[in-house]
Nucleic acid binder design. Structure first.
Length: 444
RNA sequence: CGGGGUAUAGCGCAGCCCGGUAGCGCAUCUGCUUUGGGAGCAGAGGGUCGCAGGUUCGAAUCCUGCUGCCCCGACCA
């Protein structure tokens, strides 16, 4: 993409409404535009990151055996009356009336709807287990939206729903998602720690929040130091093997970890001082097993091997991709701007032409841009007629992992410069060497 | 939902106390010079001062009501 033809409204000064660093940087980097309290438009650069996150989430959900679909944002109130949650949910639910005065709502979550879909089609235990998910906008009319997309009213959520014949099988489904979540966050360069969680209004017995540690996190968390060194499960783990994924859950729940809600001061105090990690965290995922809480009132039943009807055991599994964008920035930034982990970077390479209009510089940039693009590397080519300083500042702000800097001085010696945004390390090399290096790493 | 702020050009702000027809920096546009870490000079454009009432010869400024937004607390992907 040529920056001269892109839509990247960079702000030099920080809009005053932004308090935390991720919000500030998202506004400054032209990723996001607030349209109303807690409601945001995703500008092109922001959308690219959101899509990268979604792609990883999707790959790992699919790998774990979940099946993607798409449910609507608007739901009928009647559905929610079946589960008795229409009144329970309170003012956080945005209620809407259509032209026929029918009561509708903007979905804050989809347990009811997916249960309705399940019961419409599935009759036999032979069709289980089943896990359906979608990535869809949700609306929760938060009392106090804040921190940009970290706590917005409209937000994107990946929500998966598992259906099983019995609790043992449901626990396997839970372990699949537990494992998939560890992999998902690790692929984004995040260390997420599963912590025992309160089940809240969703209900249920078994629940974990996935928390990443960040000094600006909203909640206070406590865990064992060992978690920081645990490796995520490998890609080739057999998700169908209940023992294998069960082992992952066992390992990752073998040490103390809790949010302040569930914190047990004496259990934590029993750890040696060196092992105690007390920090702040951001919740990026939350998984629940809630048994027959919805299947019973909503009559989602299957015939078991014995021919008897039995309500299915369910779980739900949420990740907030829009919140993850903010969480990733909280965990990856410096004074100059964002530092994207390669896996979610909106572009892999920022190519800066330091002297637009200089024939040799223009030609070298055009050539590199074409070759890299052809090699499948996503390049943002800054071909604007700006001074070098402005280009460096822009590239640092938007945080692309690799900067390729081409100027007349270096080119006189046949050299260009490659800079690693995270470490600041620079190398001087020929355009061919730079191309080969980037092509070999796939831009990552 | 309780408490506290705030609203003036795209962004950041001054002006308000003490009423007299709106200003600064950045950004934008034009020209010239400049070109390896947010350049310099000259010029230009852009605002019914959040909305609605009121007081006054006259309101960004004083009064009343409303709305938006932000922050702190109680609640949440």
């Amino acid at each position: 993409m040529r920056l001269s033809k892109y839509f990247l409204p960079i702000l030099r000064e920080t809009p005053k409404e932004a308090e935390i660093v991720s919000h500030r940087l998202m506004l400054r980097a032209g990723m996001l535009r607030q349209e109303s309290a807690g409601i945001y438009a995703w500008l092109p650069l922001g959308l690219r990151v959101l899509n990268k996150i979604n792609a990883i989430v999707r790959e790992e959900q699919n790998r774990a055996g979940a099946i993607e679909m798409l449910m609507p944002t608007i739901q009928s109130a009647d559905l929610w009356r079946e589960s008795n949650r229409y009144d329970d949910y309170g003012k956080e639910m945005l209620r809407i009336k259509d032209r026929h005065e029918r009561e509708m709502l903007f979905g804050p979550t989809n347990e009811e709807m997916v249960t309705e879909i399940f019961r419409a089609y599935v009759r036999s235990y032979k069709d289980l287990p089943l896990n359906l998910y979608h990535i869809q906008w949700k609306f929760r009319d938060e009392v106090r939206p804040r921190f940009g997309v970290m706590r917005s009213r409209e937000f994107l959520m990946k929500d998966a729903y598992s259906f099983d014949l019995d609790q043992a099988s449901a626990e396997h489904s839970y372990a699949r998602m537990f494992t998939a979540y560890l992999r998902t966050f690790a692929r984004m360069g995040l260390k997420a720690i599963p912590m025992r969680a309160d089940t809240g209004p969703i209900g249920g017995k078994l629940s974990h929040e996935f928390i990443i540690l960040a000094s600006t996190g909203e909640s206070e968390v406590f865990c064992h130091k060992d978690f920081l060194d645990f490796d995520a499960p490998p890609a080739d783990i057999d998700f169908d093997d209940a023992k294998a994924v069960g082992g992952v859950v066992e390992k990752w729940t073998s040490r103390y970890a809790a949010t302040s809600d569930m914190h047990d001061v004496s259990a934590f105090g029993a750890l040696s001082g060196d092992d105690q990690v007390s920090a702040r965290g951001i919740e990026v995922g939350h998984i629940f097993y809630f048994g027959t809480k919805y299947s019973e009132p909503m009559r989602a039943v299957v015939n078991g091997p014995d021919g008897k009807e039995t309500p299915v055991h369910m779980g739900s599994y949420g990740i907030g991709p829009s919140r993850l964008v903010a969480a990733l920035i909280e965990a990856n930034h410096d004074d100059a701007g964002i530092i994207w982990p390669a896996a979610v970077a909106p572009f892999h390479v920022g190519l800066a032409n330091l002297k637009v209009g200089d024939a040799a510089t223009d030609a070298a940039c055009a050539d590199l841009y074409a070759r890299l693009t052809k090699a499948g590397i996503e390049v943002l080519y800054d071909d604007r007629d700006e001074r070098p300083g402005a280009k460096f500042a822009t590239l640092d702000l938007i945080g692309l992992p690799t900067q390729v800097i081409v100027g007349p001085k270096g080119l006189a010696d046949g050299k260009i410069e490659m800079k690693d945004r995270r470490t600041g390390a620079r190398e001087t090399l020929s355009p061919d060497e730079a191309f080969n290096k980037l092509a070999a790493s796939g831009g990552l």
